[in-house]
Structures are given as structure tokens and as C-alpha cells.
Amino acid sequence: MRLAVCLSLVPDPATIDVDPLTGEIDADRTLYIMDPADAAALELALRLRGEGDTVIALTVGPAAAEPVLREALAAGADGALRLWDESRSATKPAVTSLLLATALRNEGLPDLVFCGWRSLARGSGKIPALLGEYLDWPVVTDIARLEIQAARVHFHRRLARGDRSEGEVTMPAVLAIAADGVRLRYASLPQLMQACRTAIPMRDLPDLGLSPLDLSFPASTVHAVTPPRPRPRTIFIPDSSLSPHERIGQILSAGAAPKSNTVLEGSPDEVADAIIAFLQARGFLEQPA
């Protein structure tokens, strides 16, 4: 089986310092890391690799993005490939996924492509689906766990508030991994030294057989970048049947029930009853019939 992993080098959020006036990131202070979601995808691919299987790491980026591939090689990837269009300073998700899809076709299509579910950079989360579209493959997003069963992948998908769904997808497929607890394995020193000496092949547009016209997509303009300003949530409208005095009280408390802050003392039996009554009153336990 041939596995491909798409990696990206992203700014470490802990080192991002935003100028409150211009909204620009202080580039001097930013450190770059392999995207944690991509690292989890790489680790899962390496764990799945059996006898005779290969794992190839790909990235789209300038020469400065090479460390992410060396890290993958040191962790045990069998090959690495960098894709870039020298005329660009940055790529949009559509361009990134088109470059990846073309390179995968040229190099021989793998059986599975692994991606992170969303990057820590601009974080569109669109690349897996776009890659699936350009390869005409099925796509599964937000995979927390997976297992290969014959020509199918059985997966657990992460939904909101801790819900999970189980499903399956035929191979070949694009898999977007959202396995939070999975960390990339440590590389041994000899592997690290070896990876540092390896020359990383690069493909640009002519190598891939693409014309710059293939990469022109409808333009959007990023007009402003600002430090985050939380948006007010729609939570509450005062009850118009109440008196003005009560409505003002409701508005001032933003509709939140005031904290009752009852403090109880008593025998264990009494306080246990009080806790259960409280849980029942707040709807956490069913009321006794």
C-alpha cells in the first residue's frame, strides 16, 4: 500500500505576536513548526505502514519549508517531495491542493492521502475536500480513529460536543485527521543526521506540467487583519410582559440567572439530599415521578 501525507509548516501560535494597531504578525518573533494536525496524520500513516508499504511526505512551500519534510524523513517517512511555484509568495488552498493533486498523479497515485483537518495558519480546512475534488476521490474529514479493512477504511469521525460517528469509505480516499492526542514519534539522532543530509526533490510548475493559468482562481481580497475582537453573542431578549424595573434587571444581568451561591452545612445525608434536589431542579437529573 502506498500512503501519502500532506504536511505544512505553520507559525507556532504561542509565538505569534500581533501588533494591535496594524494587525500584523511580528515576523521576527515567530517560530515555525510542523502543523500539529499534520503531524498526527503523519504519525497515523507511519503506524499503518506494514511490510512493503511506503509513506511519502509532501509539502507546498518555498525552500524555507524544507525542515517539515526533513522532520518527516527523520520520523521514518520513505520519501519527501516539495512543490512550489517560484513566482508566488503564498498560495491559496485551491492552488495548494491543485499542486498536490497534480504531483500525486505524476508520481503515481497512492492508495490513501492523509492531511491534517485544519492548519494553524489561515486554517481554511478546505484542502482535503479540494484535493478529493481534483483527484475525484471520496473525502472523509475530522477522523479521530481509523482502521483498514480490506479495500475500505473504517473510521470514527469527530462531531460537535464530543459526539462521534462511525463510518466507512472506499479506497483510494483523502483522509483529514483530527486525532488530538496523537503526537509524532521522536526521531533518533542518526535518523535526524541522515534526514539533514538528504537532498529534497522539488517540482515547480513546468515539472508538474502546469501553466500559471491553471492556477488563477477568483480573487478575494483580505481587506484587513485585526487582533481578535469577540463578537457579541445573541443570547437574550428581555421578557416584554415584565415591569420596566424587572426588565432593566434582566438586561443588566444579560439574562443569566444570578448565581444563587447557597452555602450549606449539615450531615452527609442532608447535604447529599440537597445536592440531588439541586441537580433535579436544574434538570441534570430526572424529577421523581
Binding site: 482535503p128 475536500a129 479540494l130 475534488e133 473525502v139 482562481f217 463578537r231
Partner: peptide, 26 residues
Amino acid sequence: DSGYGRSWLPRLSARWRIPLASACIR
């Protein structure tokens, strides 16, 4: 912007060449 939406809507945006913005708050 759920896992479900991210697995099919971007494909339509590429097919129809309609821009798609994700992780939007407003």
C-alpha cells in the same frame, strides 16, 4: 463549519468556481 460541511461544500465551490470562506464568525 462542521466536519460534515467541510467534506462536501468545498468541492462544490471548486466545481462552480464560487469563493468559499470557512471559519467565519460574521
